[in-house]
Nucleic acid binder design. Sequence first.
RNA 1: GGAGGGAUGGCAGAGUGGUCGAAUGCGACGGUCUUGAAAAUCGUAGACCGAAAGGUCCGGGGGUUCGAAUCCCUCUCCCUCCGCCA
Length: 427
Amino acid sequence: MLDLTFIREHPDLIKEVAQQRNTAVDVDALLAIDADLRETRRRAEDLRAEQNRLSKAIQGAGADREARDGFIASGREVAAALKELEPRERELEAQLREYLLLVPNIPDASVPVGKGEEDNVEIKRVGQPRQFSFEPLDHVALMQGADMLDIERGVKVAGSRSYILKGDAVLLELALMQFALSRITQHGFTALSVPAMAKEFCFIGNSQFPRGREQTYALPEDELFLVGTAEVSITGMHSGEILREADLPIRYVAWSPCFRREAGTYGKDTKGIMRVHQFEKIEQYVICRAEHEESVRWHEELLRNAEELVQALELPYRVINICTGDLGDAKVKGYDIECWIPSEQRYRETHSDSYFHDYQARRANLRYRGDDGVVRYVHTLNNTALASVRTIIAIVENHQQADGTVRVPEALRPFLGGRERLGRAWR
RNA sequence: GGAGGGAUGGCAGAGUGGUCGAAUGCGACGGUCUUGAAAAUCGUAGACCGAAAGGUCCGGGGGUUCGAAUCCCUCUCCCUCCGCCA
């Protein structure tokens, strides 16, 4: 959410940004509602002031019966007038908020302007895709061969895009989670295990709602939704608070399952488990002071942390700067880390590193009191540390051996009881 | 799932229709004292809208009333007991 005053003063900028970001918001309608609300509110406040004056007059009238009755009669009229105005005021407030939630954030000047995924800009490449001395398998053939994956029965249980990890794949998944938690906490981040179900306000605060609502699983009986990332729960957990500047920055690394409906992706990534409805993720999250430079500094640091993990897993990857059209509504700027997937001969997104300035904080009403006593909205950032399924794919495909086993990268071995190979030789 | 009790400022906790944005204590901040600190002592301090005047906020929403922290309805959350349960 942006500051309403800023929107009033820069309607044309908002329109331009909305277009660049492939999103729609009726700025003129928003401003019309705003003007109407301000006028309505002014009238209501005048009436309330009058009401307060009369209330004091009634008390001051004491035994003067006649004066008292006169004031009460006037009070009755004012109350009646207010009663007409107040529903209108509430209605306008609700309408304005609906529009405000649709206004996108202003991208940073360093974000490339573009229409979609194809306009994202690669900013670095690390590691060389491996030259195989044998015909490498895709993750499905490889994992099924090693009895690490059962897609058919996963689909039987939970429908398309579901899967069952088996055997060493389960150990690998847990090892990856522990590996990421262990590394990131060493950087001073506090580990969290957060609710995977959350109330609507968390999703609004985080900007998953109202747009993107159809990507989220709902539990209507309980008015809860399944989170697509721990980010939702973390934004919710501090919402409405006023933190102290001395407590900042707050750095979390959170473990949670992630649920995604993947509505509208029929036909995309139909083979294998590249795109699934449920996976596990370790997420980095930072709440810091409201300074652009500090946001940028953390954005880069979160990227470094994630890169460190990917490098330790010996995966070739690249980093891209996401263009305006692919950025969504909320981010000021975003990097993706994409790992090399041999079977696809291309890089695929495994991490997403974002900063928001106060956009999420405003929606979640998350503020801090500066050392100067001024209350401001915090800045928020987050980046994947490690997401289970896609990283599993990258590891098994990149580290597969001619015999059908998977070499365990050195850094991961302590989390797998020292094992050097996963799966069993089968080809 | 059933029965009961609660929700007030950073925290604890008064306040049952007007003089209450709200006593008091603790904590916080600033001053005095001190080499420094503690103690003592004096003082300051909530959030939101508004250029201001002014208005709003005592868990959320609705209602009664000229007037609600206080009365009524409703929702949420917390606590206690019972049931169920990893």
